[in-house]
């Protein structure tokens, strides 16, 4: 079965950066947002690697990545992602931070997907992360699915296999360290991925160079995309203020520390 795999994925600050909220004229943002190095959202990254794996096993499948973010940042991040695997990019030039409105984001993504030349819903698998590392809400993928009229949806997916009869067998994370297993007869479906099980592919310079030949024009003509800045009224955004008075226990034998910890556990 050949699928049209569409991966929705945004940008997130490099995970090691120090983040601090600030108030901007258009609402909350991050201090030095322009300066922060970005990565492809890690959850969406897992979705992309799974997409590549699926496409490899399902000949004729295609991968398109729909990404909303400031054009220059998208371009910079693509220089890393594009080396991993072959895909086409549909770039939307707009705000990319966590404080944007998920409803507007879902509309922008769904509109972009629906406008893909040759988009065939019956073959579509819409992939994304189960949450972003920015907003962390886990709502956009469901809304994209609804807007596209796809009601077979899965959240926190860790595994997808395709049965010989073409059914999708999907493992979703549920509470208690368990997975729920479902069978979906056929595409279309929305799969919002957790981590999956595939490692990040190594960089492949040839793939990167080939990808970039088509990505650069896509980036240059990225569609300016406005979101609704008034959808959410933020009263406050703050860092947690709790600093604890840490009691330092040092130069104490391990046995004594163990005794103290054992007593604490039993409390």
């Amino acid at each position: 079965m050949a699928y049209q795999i569409i991966v929705c994925g945004g940008l997130a600050p490099d995970p090691l950066q120090t983040l601090e909220p600030v108030t901007t004229p258009t609402g909350p943002g991050l201090k030095n947002e322009l300066m922060l190095p970005n990565v492809f959202d890690p959850w969406a990254g897992h979705a992309l690697y799974e997409a590549a794996n699926l496409a490899k096993n399902q000949p004729g499948s295609t991968i398109k990545v729909v990404s909303l973010g400031p054009k220059a940042k998208l371009q910079q991040v693509m220089m890393t992602v594009a080396q991993k695997l072959p895909f086409e990019l549909i770039a939307l030039d707009g705000p990319g931070g966590g404080f944007t409105d998920a409803v507007s984001v879902s509309k922008a993504l769904a509109d972009a997907i629906a406008a893909i030349p040759g988009f065939d819903k019956s073959q579509a698998l819409i992939f994304g992360g189960w949450e972003s590392a920015t907003r962390g809400a886990g709502v956009v993928m469901q809304m994209v699915g609804e807007r596209l009229g796809i009601t077979e949806q899965f959240l926190a997916v860790d595994e997808l296999t395709v049965d010989p009869d073409g059914a999708l067998v999907i493992k979703e994370r549920v509470e208690g360290g368990k997975h729920q297993i479902s069978k979906c007869a056929a595409a279309p479906a929305v799969l919002a991925w957790a981590t999956g099980s595939l490692p990040e592919p190594p960089n492949h310079p040839q793939t990167g160079m080939a990808n970039m030949r088509v990505m650069m024009p896509a980036l240059q003509k990225a569609k300016p995309t406005a979101l609704d800045p008034a959808a959410i009224a933020y009263a406050q955004v703050a860092l947690p203020a709790v600093t604890r008075q840490t009691r330092i226990v040092k130069d104490v034998p391990a046995a004594d520390i163990a005794a103290e910890i054992a007593a604490w556990i039993k409390q």
């Binding site: 840490t246 330092i248 040092k250 130069d251 391990a254 520390i257 163990a258 103290e260 910890i261 054992a262």
Partner: peptide, 25 residues
């Protein structure tokens, strides 16, 4: 990353402490 974040910080080798804990639990 511990100071100010944990209530108690034991400055010790985790292997040694966990070996001792194993005896106590």
């Amino acid at each position: 990353w511990s100071r100010g974040k944990a209530d108690v910080l034991y400055v010790a080798d985790s292997f040694e402490v966990m070996r001792e804990l194993e005896k106590l639990l």
